[in-house]
Amino acid sequence: MVTIKDVAKAAGVSPATVSLALNNNDKVNRETRKRVQAVARSLNYIPNARAKALVEKSTKIIGLVIPEIHNPFFSEMAQAIKDYLQDSDYSIILCGTDNNPDLESKYINMFKGGLVDGAIFSCITNVNNEVVHDLARNYLPLVYIDRVAEDEEVIPMIKSNLAEGAYQLTRHLLDLGHRKIAFIGRTDEERFQGYLKGMQEAGCPVIESYIFDQSYTFDQGIAAGKTLLTLPEKPTGVVCFNDEVALGLTQFMVKAGRKIPTDLSVCGIDNTVSRYYNPEITTIDVPKQEMGRTAARLLLKMIKGEKIRAEERFIHFPVTLIKRDSTAPPR
């Protein structure tokens, strides 16, 4: 393995000069910097990241904590964050929790140990909020995406209006003539409140057997579909937690011989894979890429010690209803 001493010997300078030159330090004149950097490239020299982090007191790494790496919503967001960071010296490390608070706690402890210079949390759960706030107050800057902060002065929050999204979907189904509308998602989260608001405004009953709690994956969409088919009085429309649930439900219904939207109108939220299915799924577009870029921009400002303006501590992004072929008037 090529060391800094090998580069110094080949370039005819001291190891200290090599270190300064590779970090573009002005203490080394421009010609010497170029010559040292050229020698380092020719020898395929790779700086010791640990040693560099100790000297600079910076890892140049940002942690991104998400619940599901395979979920297209989070992968699109992660890509936007990575792309934004390309013009900086920072890279991201992806930390998937699988919706497991214990795994999130493990990442938090890793961050406390100096693994990253800052982190973005995009997990709905609030189980570890106290621990996360301790991380933000005493260790490193953090930004939330679609996770509620107890104190926006400590953790700035980037938020999409998911309650409004579920409300728009519910109103869309009601406007089509549906009155028996199910909800597949989480009852402890704002999307359910948006669904309830729409149903209550229309004077429609919320039927207990139409509510599916803790259902936010493709497989849980399939499971909900199996249960729906056993009901004596079936819903004619469904508001789903996200596009994954909507696709799981739709796929199961089609395999079971049901037609979408003739037998059941289905809506999702996110606008990810929904546009690639047949029929294309009616959904709510969430500006995930813009949210990711905004979170990265804010976090870099915090890492650099720049002041965050009051209006940047809570940024609310609007959502948009996209009507597609999976919804129609009931039979």
Rank of each mutant, 00 (worst) to 15 (best):
K301F: 05
F192W: 04
F192M: 04
N25C: 03
N271L: 09
G237D: 11
V7A: 00
Y84N: 10
D6W: 03
K60Q: 11
A182M: 05
R50M: 12
V18N: 04
A246P: 12
V239D: 01
N126Q: 12
V143M: 12
D325A: 15
T97V: 04
I284N: 00
T250H: 06
S19E: 01
N44T: 03
I124T: 15
K288M: 11
A163S: 13
L174I: 14
I308Y: 08
A53F: 09
T262Y: 15
G114S: 07
H133I: 09
E290L: 12
I284M: 02
R147F: 08
V131C: 09
R147K: 14
E130W: 03
E306D: 10
T283N: 02
A8N: 00
T170D: 06
N126G: 12
G225R: 07
K9E: 13
D213W: 10
E208H: 10
E233P: 11
K52G: 11
I211C: 05
G268F: 00
A328I: 04
E306Y: 02
R331P: 15
M302H: 03
K52L: 08
T17Q: 07
K234E: 02
A223K: 07
E290H: 09
Y139L: 13
Y90N: 02
N271Y: 07
A8C: 00
